[in-house]
Amino acid sequence: MKYDAATSAPGTDIVPPNTDAPSFLQKIARDKQKLGVCFVLPTILLLLFIVVFPLLMQIYLSMSWWGPLDGTPWYKAYESFNFFEQYLYLLEDERFWGSLWRTLLIMLVCVPAEFLLGLGLAYLFIDQFPGRKLFYSILLVPMMVVPAVVGLMFFLLFQGTGPVNDMFGLPPDFSWLTDKDRAIYTVMIADIWQWTPLMFLILLAGMLGVPRDQLLAAQLLGGSNFQNFRKIILPRMRTVMIIALVLRSVEMFKIFDLIYIMTKGGPGVQTETISVYIYKLTFADLEWGYVAAIGLTILIALSVLAAYGLKAMARQTEEA
């Protein structure tokens, strides 16, 4: 609205703003795109701070021997600055390589096992059958249980005098959790028990996403169930399968609670994974600078893994 001099009472000092010249905000508002940027900018800055700051802090700490008992605050870590010495140490740290290898071993056994079990279960659930909903709910229960509780459950199950030994008629001195060879398999069993349902859930969603008409059409064209599964269902759910595999593989690096409760990484270091090792370094050895270095290394390794998976996925989406 235009300011009209005639309407302003004489003798008043208030000079109304000249609304003809657009204010800064109005100028921005004209350009919708700029306005949009203005709205999201604070959020982006906050996010950057939350994400970038800890990362930078970690990089900084990973280049020093700093620990909480040094008596200096963290930002004074430059006093024990050593550049890449810790990374060199890392290369020779057999306990690190051992824990990394065990993490990979668990991953290589558990992820495929969970995947195949999940896929099989999902296939059983595409068709309606009486009690489908009930079985579905029961199947999902392990996933809902707190991992620490799962750890406790399996800890109790696999005691020398526990139900498992009773069931198979094994003597009480046949130990699972304290045997240097068997302990890791016990951990794997617990992990598979807990995380197969997640695979099942994701893969079932993918399978139900295959248009039902196409399945029926394939059947009517004479394809056996196995042929249709291989030629129609599997190719159509490749994206979902990649997501499930990447998700679980990355998750596997973080496996901790189960192991900590069941074996504490023992016997010795026989079930010590990366996470458990980091935990021990952090709270027992208080080697925080070194922990930061390990953390970064793992982060980079995982990023490469995830990027590879995502790339495969993008290729698949392009084709489809």
Binding site: P211, L216, L220, G223, K231, E319
Partner: peptide, 28 residues
């Protein structure tokens, strides 16, 4: 269903869009 010898054309055609035209035709 497989052994009934029924040809069925769906309302939305149910074409196997992830396969080539050739593979669609040759499926049966």
């Amino acid at each position: 269903i497989q052994d009934r010898g029924v040809g069925f054309v769906f309302q939305n055609y149910a074409i196997f869009t992830h396969l080539s035209v050739h593979k669609n035709l040759s499926y049966a």
